[in-house]
Amino acid sequence: MLIIITFSSGRLPFLKGDPVAKGTVHIVVERCKACGFCVEFCPTHVLALSSAFNSKGYHPPHVIHPENCSGCDLCGMYCPDFAIYSKKVNTGGGK
């Protein structure tokens, strides 16, 4: 039996296999000062601080789970150095 729960907003809960929003992260390594805001506040935990250095001696973030990125651009909003941003990829899923 299929039970469909409808919320007052009219939205349905995600089911396995539903299309979800996808995105890609772009990192400008040389601007990063390794504050870690993007790594901490990424809702899908796409990022981690890498062990590599940039030319100023900071450890910029790198992408560890690219498949989880939804392109919400929260990393871009948090970044105080304008060194990271994400863009939605048009997959037909998500809004």
Partner: peptide
């Protein structure tokens, strides 16, 4: 003019 002078972890850039 980037990178700017604000310290790592400063919130002004945000």
């Amino acid at each position: 003019r980037m990178p700017h002078i604000w310290c790592p972890g400063c919130g002004i850039g945000t």
